[in-house]
């Protein structure tokens, strides 16, 4: 399991041995429930128990915004900000031909169909700021551009509370490029 090394695993085992049987059963059931009940939303491909998912059916959410992410876990990160109230679309990864992942292996076709039917006014591409994330974002903007929908990308910049002194040169250069007028 990711992030669980032999030491942590041993600690978990000893912890569980000291707990009542009911607790172990509850944990086992919870793990099974994850496998049995959680599936993909047929609309945005996020993880859900109900299909379509709560994020897709919530009428209070802004249907004119669509945020494209690589993985379902990215939605949780964005939701924690409480700053975004639009819809999502999960690609299921990033384009990387060397790993055998092309647009056909991701939910790109589904995204284009959704944009055609749901007609959002803006698509926000929130992929990681690395080479694959970058290429995927540019590729999507190429595909979406003909539909006339505006495509935006998350900004690059300095971490809040950070220190200019310690920022790496490349991030700082990107932050300079993306500077904004003070209002």
């Amino acid at each position: 399991m990711p992030t669980v090394g032999p030491k942590t695993a041993a600690r978990l085992v000893f912890y569980l041995l000291n707990r009542p049987r009911a607790e172990a059963e509850a944990l086992a059931e919870a793990i099974l429930a994850v496998k049995d009940r959680v599936r993909l939303c047929s609309r945005c491909f996020s993880l859900t128990e109900e299909d379509p998912c709560a994020l897709c059916t919530d009428v209070r959410r802004d249907a004119t915004l669509m945020c494209v992410v690589a993985e379902a876990k990215d939605i949780f990160a964005l939701e924690r900000t409480s700053a975004y109230h639009g819809r999502y679309h999960v690609l299921g990864g990033l384009i990387s031909p060397m790993d055998g992942i092309g647009p056909a292996q991701l939910r790109v076709k589904e995204l284009i169909e959704r944009i055609a039917s749901e007609r959002p006014s803006e698509v926000i591409v929130a992929t990681n700021p690395n080479a694959e994330g970058e290429a995927t974002a540019l590729y999507l903007s190429r595909l979406i551009a003909p539909s006339g929908v505006s495509v935006t990308r998350l900004a690059y910049g300095l971490p809040i509370g950070g220190d200019l002194d310690y920022a790496d040169e490349i991030t700082l250069a990107k932050a300079l490029e993306g500077r904004r007028t003070l209002q």
């Binding site: 031909p97 060397m98 092309g102 647009p103 292996q105 290429a135 590729y139 190429r142 595909l143």
Partner: peptide, 13 residues
Amino acid sequence: GVVESDDALLATY
């Protein structure tokens, strides 16, 4: 040809 050829993707790279 590791993945299906795609003009838009080639243009992106």
